[in-house]
Design a protein around this nucleic acid. Structure first.
Lengths: 153, 153
DNA sequence: TCTTCCGTTGAGCATTCTGCTCATGCTCCG
DNA sequence: CGGAGCATGAGCAGAATGCTCAACGGAAGA
């Protein structure tokens, strides 16, 4: 990924529906170049799945919560699998430090969240959990600043 | 968002580059319908920004860390602004419970992370922080299970 | 310095998609 | 019953896509 790629991504971030042709003339590149680079980025995994763009909100799950957990390390694989079986579990990280797991969860409402938290706690191998509700998205997910820096070079 | 929308999103998740025509015939819907629904979803904010699809990894930031922080609540707006000024800060949530803030950070390497953590701690209004490195992505971000459920209806 | 390799570019071409409009039919609801 | 809202099929002009080719230039390496 070089600066040109970053510039393409920036333009794409501004207008997701932009066609290759539009990007090309906007960036002063040839259509072929843009096409090749976009293809390369998709191939090379620089672009994650489309799912990331879907707002859980729109699926009727306006609540986000983070569950931190301590786990019996030896049963990590098992725990991980069990968590993956819960639909509302959107993302799980293995962490360094005090807590072993960070589980990102979405829920339809408070009661739903309660149910899900319970289900997580019930997973064999999970020892302790703490649930924190995301009350506000102070900085919504973004990569533009980093992209800008990469594009500057 | 009804079941049909969910089905469209599922198909789109499987093949992000799929054209409207392809989706239509794959789902047994008319081209017009799919076009209208996709447009409606983009309009209605069901689809987040394109940035979400970009892997920080590809931008030279393979490390992810979560910084939790306690804040002087009265200076929350100020803190939020200062965090937004840090390019490596990818996402910030205001939480309920013990810790007030969850800051998602990406970094180029360990040293970079150290520097960023320091910068966060230096933000006026932030009282205490804990940094946890994401060592593994046990469940990569996904929404498919929820989508499937929504599509089933 | 010369050569090779790689990415960019412009061109061209057939095929396909898009954006838009219109009329029709269906279902839900007042 | 009448209307609103949505899905559908058709049609059309313009644009984009996918692909290939040849030429060019710069950078790395012999």
């Amino acid at each position: 990924m070089d600066a040109t790629d970053a510039r393409i991504l920036l333009a794409l971030a501004a207008q997701p529906r932009a066609t290759v042709v539009a990007l090309a003339e906007q960036l002063g590149l040839s259509r072929n170049t843009v096409q090749a680079r976009v293809a390369r980025m998709e191939q090379g995994g620089a672009l994650g799945s489309f799912e990331r763009r879907i707002a859980p909100n729109a699926l009727g799950h306006p609540l986000t919560a983070f569950v931190t957990a301590r786990v019996d390390q030896r049963r990590l694989a098992e725990v991980s699998g069990a968590l993956a079986d819960i639909a509302e579990v959107v993302e799980v990280f293995g962490l360094s430090g005090e807590t072993d797991l960070l589980v990102r969860v979405v829920a339809a409402d408070a009661e739903d969240l309660y149910r899900i938290a319970g289900r997580i706690l019930a997973v064999p191998g999970i020892e302790r959990t703490t649930t924190a509700l995301a009350m506000r998205e102070l900085v919504p997910h973004r990569l533009t600043p980093l992209l800008r820096r990469a594009a500057a070079r």
